[in-house]
Amino acid sequence: MNWQVISHSLPIFAQAFKLTLWLSLVGILGSLIVGALSSLIQYFKVPILSQLFTAYVELARNTPLLIQLFFLYYAFPVIGLKMSATTCGIIGLIFLGGAYMAEGFTGGFSGVNQTQIDNGKALGMNNLQLARYVVFPQGFALSMPALAANVIFLIKETSIFSVIAIPELTNTALDLIGMYYRSNEYLFVLVVAYAIVLIPVILLLNLLERRVRYGTFGD
C-alpha cells in the first residue's frame, strides 16, 4: 500500500464522490415519487393503470439494472432515442428504484387498519382524500423500514453505472487501476468512500425510522 498513490488520487475521487452522491440523491427522490404514485394507484385499484403499474413493478424488480442500462444506452438509439450516459443512468435507477419503493409502500399501505379506511369513508372522504389523509400518512410510517433498505440498496446500485462509463466512484477506481495498475490502493479508497457515504446514511435512517414511527403511532 503506497500512501502517496492514495493521496494523489484523492482529488479525482472527490469529484467521483460528489457525482455518486448527486446521482443517488436524484435517483432516490425520483424512485420515491414513482414508487408512491404507483403504489397508491395499485392500492385504489385504478382501472387499467393499476394493471400497467403492476406489470412495470414486476418487470423492473425481476431484471438486473445492468441490462436495463444497456438497453437504455445501446438499444434505444436504434429506435431513435439517444440519451447521454448520465441521463440513462438516472432513468434506469428510477425505473428500478421506483419498483422497489412501490413494493415498500404497498407493504406499508396494506398494514393500514381497515377500520381506519372505513371510518374515512363514513366521514364522506373520496379516494383522493383517503389517500392524502389516511392511507399515506399511516402507511408511510409502516413502510419506513423497507424504504430505508431501498435507499441503501439504490446508493450501492449506482456502482453499476460504471458499465456505461459514468465517472462515479467505481468507474473512477477502475479507470485509475487500468491506467496505473495500483489495484490495492484504489480499491482501498473505493471501499472507504462507500463507507463514508453509507455509514452516516444508515445511522440517519435508523434514527428517522424511530422518529417517524413515534410521531405517527407514539410507540
Binding site: 450501492k156 456502482s159 460504471s162 487501476i177 490495492n184 480499491l187 471501499v191 462507500y194 444508515i202
Partner: peptide, 16 residues
Amino acid sequence: FRIVPTIVLLYLVYYI
C-alpha cells in the same frame, strides 16, 4: 458486505 456494492466485491477478489 452491507456497505460494499457487489460489483466492488467482485473486483476486490479479482484483483487482490
